[in-house]
Structures are given as C-alpha cells and as structure tokens.
Nucleic acid binder design. Sequence first.
DNA 1: GTGTTTGCAAAGTGTTTGCAATTTA
DNA 2: TAAATTGCAAACACTTTGCAAACAC
Lengths: 146, 146
Amino acid sequence: MTVMKPASHHQNRPAKPDGLLRNAGLRPTRQRKALAQLLFAQGDRHVTAETLYDEALAAGYHVSLATIYNTLHQFSDAGLLRVIAIDTSKTYFDTNTGDHHHFFIEETNEIVDMPDGYIRVENLPEPPQGMEISRVDVIVRVRSPL
Amino acid sequence: MTVMKPASHHQNRPAKPDGLLRNAGLRPTRQRKALAQLLFAQGDRHVTAETLYDEALAAGYHVSLATIYNTLHQFSDAGLLRVIAIDTSKTYFDTNTGDHHHFFIEETNEIVDMPDGYIRVENLPEPPQGMEISRVDVIVRVRSPL
DNA sequence: GTGTTTGCAAAGTGTTTGCAATTTA
DNA sequence: TAAATTGCAAACACTTTGCAAACAC
C-alpha cells in the first residue's frame, strides 16, 4: 500500500497570499507575503525559524531572522500554523493545522506527517478534575534498525 | 561488562541509592546519592533541572546546577530516567521509565502520568521506508474550560 | 499623516563545556 | 595514587525584545 501525503484539510490557498493575510488580520507586507508564499504555496510543510530563514534567503527575499520569528508566531496565533513540540531544542511549525499526527525520525530530526485516517487512540482516561481535552498529540519516533 | 537496567520502574527503590547507582555504573558520590534520593524515594516524578535544583537546595543539599544537568543526563543514559519532549522551552525528566503516556496541563505546564492500562493506539501506518518504531508518545493536552 | 511593521543589536533563557580543584576507590 | 567527578564561569544555541527607521493605508 502506498503511503500518501494526507490530503490537506485546507482549501485552495489564493495564489497571492494577500487575502490569506487580510483574513487573518495581518497587513500584507512584503515580508509576510514572501513567507506566506514559501509556507503555503507548496504542500504541507514543517519548518523551523532557521530553515525558513535559509529558504527565504535562497529565494532572494530579504527578511530578518527576528521577523521570521515574529511572523511564525503571528501566523500561529492566527491559526495558519501550528506548533509541534517534539524536540526540546527547536520549535517546529506545521502548515497543516488539521487533525493529524507525526513520525519523528530520530537520526535526522525530520518530521513526517502521518496520512489522515490512520491512528486511533482508544481508551483515553478521564482528564484530571475540571479539565477538558484540548488536543491529543501522537508522535511515533522511528529510527533505522541497528 | 554490561550496564544493567533498573529492576523495574514500579518496584520500591532501595532506601539507600548506592546500589541503584552502582548497578547503573555510576559512582555513588554525595551529589548523585542526594539527587537519586530526591528522585526515586518518592513515587513517580517529573522534574526539570531547575525544579530539582531548587528542591536540592531546599533539602539542604549543595549541588551545582551544572552537576544537576550532568546527573540528569547520566541517569537518562543509564535508563533510570526518561526525557519527555512536551514543551519546547524546557527539558522534563520522568522517573517512570515504563510504558505510559501523559497529560499536559497547559495553564501550569504540569505533566501528569496517565494510569497504566489506558491508551491504546490503533491503526498505526507503516513507518517510513527502512525505519522501525522506537517509541510511541501520546500527549493529551488539557486545560480548564473557557 | 498615523499607526504598524521591520531590522538590528542587545538581552534573555535554558543548557553545555573547559578546566582546576576535589573526591572516590 | 589514579581516575572519576564536581563547580565555577564562560560559551552556546535558540528565541525574544527595545527602539529608531521604513512602510502600509
């Protein structure tokens, strides 16, 4: 069976990210448009501030690292991105904000989406007193055999 | 000469941690004994370097923060502790090295063990080409209702 | 024009490391 | 005594922040 990338839950993004940004309440500045382009024009992606920074440079955009950090957080707050807590040393951002889980490749620190429809968590206990579940994250750590 | 695994994460630890440390191939120094005492004499615990440091001070032990970090890693390498990646900003260590999962209370950054026997992950997809699963982590994030 | 956003450099936070002094076996 | 361990301070990696200059509307 072929492992496919999950069909993205989001609708077709506009070719120009202006609408996306405006809908999120963010001014479509040059930097935000460039980063939105990099993040959302391709399929689902996992980036860190550093990888996005390098990518922006390689694509010929001038965006400072501070702005990358600020923008990633603004996008997350606006619901365009989601933070993955998987590695204590770096913050990963996922362009797929839908319900899905991840493989984490230990050797390379790579994150891979799990196809939608897989993973079912059964027999959850009651959350602690007075708490409600906000999300269930499943991380399947994988490595090459010894 | 093999480094032995801890007897079990659920059995009572020896009152004196010397044996525990020796079995792990670590010299029972004053600092390690103090930290092992704090970590393993009570039930299952979740600590950060900082919380353990404060606790050691409060208990009248004098252990430098650098030694706390070194010791937490030595204990982890020896299989006495396990790292939980749950929060990008801090490293949490769990004294329960057995198979179990966690609640994470978002307001307080508190980690709570899930009772054993709960949680079953069904319908795992094939790991990526040439990879094998090393561990499956489930984190149930909870918060108080709005 | 006015309020927002950017970029730089500095500061902040959690963690690791080099090395002399100390401790353990 | 030899080898392992500690503690300090400095170094580190990642991230956040203050503020003047640039930009969007």
